[in-house]
């Protein structure tokens, strides 16, 4: 796409792009380049020199038990976060869409948790399930269930998933509701006249028509689970117990800043970089497709 009309001048446009160019070069391309460069070296223990190891860091990582475990943890975590938050949101959106009026009120009531930071969501859920003072823990205790996410790996995973999915319901609800309301009423009514019950209509018509929204949300939520949930994990479990909730982003932080292992941390950054790029490509291809629909 090009504009027919353009202004003359070379210096002015260059001046106009300069601020963005400088900020992006210094704070984006240079660090990203550094990450790639450092991933090929191992610093000596005193940090005085760097030893070239080629792809050694990657070799080491991919054969490392903990790193592979972190991959598996990330997969489980993102699948759970994505399916729980999208499932709940779709359910609520379908209900709101059935209402003749009032769906706007529910929308207002449901969207504002979007503004709650993942780290704050983490603190709220950690408080509810705190082993000493948590209200939910206490009532679970009454029922005879001894909740302890500090020791139990499954419960720790469950808690970080719940806190991450909770904060995401608003966003998914908003997009699902918009998607549902964009489906022409006449199509649904025609099916209803033909005697299709609600569930049949949903399964055979509504859900397929909603698939562009669903697919878009799938990608966006996976990206969210990969990167933006750092705050939830850091506040609730700090990756524990026994690394049961150490997702990839958390490991970059733990190895790079806590463990000071720059080579490995950079190699991990590069692997994440490749993962995000793949996700972005998927997303863009999908958006191109959507234009044709």
């Amino acid at each position: 796409m090009e504009k027919r009309v353009s202004f003359k001048g070379v210096l002015l446009p260059l001046l106009l792009v300069l601020p963005q160019l400088v900020v992006t070069a210094v704070f984006f391309f240079y660090p990203a380049g550094q990450a790639i460069w450092q991933s090929l070296f191992i610093p000596d223990p005193f940090g005085l020199s760097m030893q070239w190891v080629g792809l050694g860091n990657f070799d080491y990582l991919l054969s490392n038990r903990y790193y592979r475990a972190s991959f598996a943890t990330t997969a489980v975590f993102s699948i759970l976060v994505t399916s729980v938050s999208m499932g709940v949101a779709l359910f609520l959106a379908v209900l709101a869409d059935r209402l003749i009026r009032g769906s706007g009120v529910y929308r207002t009531l449901l969207i504002w948790p979007y503004a709650v930071a993942p780290a704050v969501a983490g603190v709220l859920w950690m408080f509810m399930f705190n082993t000493r003072v948590g209200v939910v823990t206490w009532y679970l205790g009454l029922l005879g269930y001894d909740w302890n996410h500090v020791l139990n790996e499954g419960e720790a995973m469950g808690l970080v998933v719940a806190a991450s999915a909770w904060g995401r319901i608003s966003y998914n609800f908003l997009f699902f509701l918009a998607g549902l309301q964009a489906i022409p009423r006449s199509v649904i009514e025609a099916a209803a006249i033909d005697g299709a019950r609600f569930w049949t209509r949903f399964r055979t018509m509504v859900f397929p028509l909603l698939s562009p929204t669903t697919f878009f949300l799938l990608v966006v939520n996976i990206v969210y689970a990969f990167f933006e949930t750092f705050g939830v994990i850091h506040t609730i479990t700090s990756g524990g117990p026994q690394q049961a909730t150490t997702i990839l982003v958390y490991k970059v932080y733990a190895d790079g800043f806590v463990g000071q292992d720059l080579g490995s941390s950079s190699a991990q950054s590069v692997i994440l970089l490749v993962l995000v790029s793949l996700l972005t490509v998927v997303q863009f291809r999908f958006i191109e497709r959507r234009v044709h629909y």
Binding site: A32, A35, V249, V252, G256, L273
Partner: peptide, 13 residues
């Protein structure tokens, strides 16, 4: 690239 991916080098800058 979210900032999370390039934290260590960005920190150094």
């Amino acid at each position: 690239l979210p900032v999370e991916v390039r934290i260590v080098p960005t920190y150094e800058v």
